[in-house]
Lab assay of single mutants.
Amino acid sequence: DHWHVHIDGERIRLDGASEEFIRTLEELIRRGTDARELKEIIKEYLR
């Protein structure tokens, strides 16, 4: 599956992301997590 998110107007691909990770991201977004912080979390995950 190819997922991607838009954060700060930037399109970030989440290739190979699990549904669990996507749900976690959605939860963080709902909580109002800062965009820079979200991008860091995604970069760490994709390593």
Rank of each mutant, 00 (worst) to 15 (best):
L25A: 01
A17Y: 05
H4R: 02
E44D: 11
I29A: 03
E37A: 12
R47M: 15
I29D: 01
E20R: 08
W3D: 06
L28Y: 09
G16Q: 07
I12L: 06
I41A: 09
E40P: 01
D34F: 04
T24F: 11
E37V: 15
I29S: 03
G32M: 06
I41V: 12
R30G: 09
L28Q: 04
H4I: 15
G16K: 06
V5F: 07
V5T: 08
D8H: 04
R30S: 12
G16S: 07
I12K: 01
L46Q: 07
G16T: 06
D15E: 14
Y45G: 03
E19A: 13
E40H: 10
T24E: 12
D1H: 13
R30E: 11
S18W: 03
L28V: 06
R11I: 15
I41N: 01
E44N: 09
E44V: 07
I22S: 02
E40A: 14
A17E: 02
D34M: 06
E20P: 05
R23F: 05
R11E: 15
A35I: 12
E10T: 05
S18Y: 02
S18G: 09
L14Q: 01
R23Q: 13
T33M: 12
I29F: 04
W3C: 07
F21Q: 02
E37R: 09
G16N: 12
I12T: 03
E19D: 13
E37S: 12
F21Y: 03
L28M: 11
I29N: 01
Y45F: 10
R11P: 14
E44Y: 04
T33G: 06
E37I: 14
H6P: 01
K43C: 07
I29P: 00
H4C: 14
H6I: 15
I7M: 06
I12H: 04
I42C: 02
L14E: 00
R30K: 12
F21H: 01
W3T: 08
G16I: 05
E19P: 14
I7L: 10
D8C: 04
G9K: 03
L28E: 05
S18L: 04
F21S: 01
F21E: 01
L38K: 00
H2N: 14
H4F: 14
W3A: 09
A17R: 02
R36I: 11
R11N: 15
E26Q: 13
W3G: 06
K43N: 11
G9W: 05
E27H: 09
R23A: 13
E27M: 10
R23G: 07
E20Y: 09
F21T: 02
E44P: 06
G32D: 04
G9N: 07
E40G: 07
E20V: 04
E26T: 12
R11M: 15
I42D: 00
L46T: 06
H6M: 15
T33R: 05
H4V: 15
D34C: 06
H4A: 10
E10C: 08
S18Q: 04
G9T: 05
D8V: 03
E44K: 08
I22W: 04
I22M: 09
A17K: 02
D8K: 03
A35R: 05
E19F: 10
H2V: 14
R11Y: 15
R36K: 14
S18K: 05
E26G: 07
S18D: 11
I22L: 08
Y45P: 00
L38S: 00
G32Y: 02
D8L: 03
I42Q: 00
G32V: 03
A35T: 09
K39R: 13
V5M: 07
H6G: 04
T33Y: 04
I22E: 01
L38Q: 00
L46I: 11
K39G: 06
I12D: 01
L46C: 14
L38G: 00
D8A: 07
W3I: 11
E40Q: 13
L28C: 04
E10W: 04
D1K: 10
G32F: 03
I42Y: 03
V5A: 07
A17G: 06
R31G: 11
R13N: 15
G32C: 04
H2L: 07
A35F: 08
L46V: 11
D15Q: 10
T33P: 02
E10G: 02
A35D: 07
Y45M: 05
D8Q: 06
E26I: 11
F21M: 07
I22D: 00
L38M: 06
D1I: 09
K39Y: 13
D1P: 14
E26Y: 07
F21I: 06
R23L: 08
R13K: 11
G9V: 05
W3S: 08
D1S: 11
R47S: 15
K43I: 13
A17V: 13
H6D: 15
I29T: 03
L28K: 05
E20C: 03
G32P: 03
E37W: 10
L28F: 06
V5E: 01
T24R: 13
T24I: 10
A17P: 05
L25W: 03
T24W: 09
A35P: 13
E27S: 09
I41D: 00
R23D: 06
R11K: 15
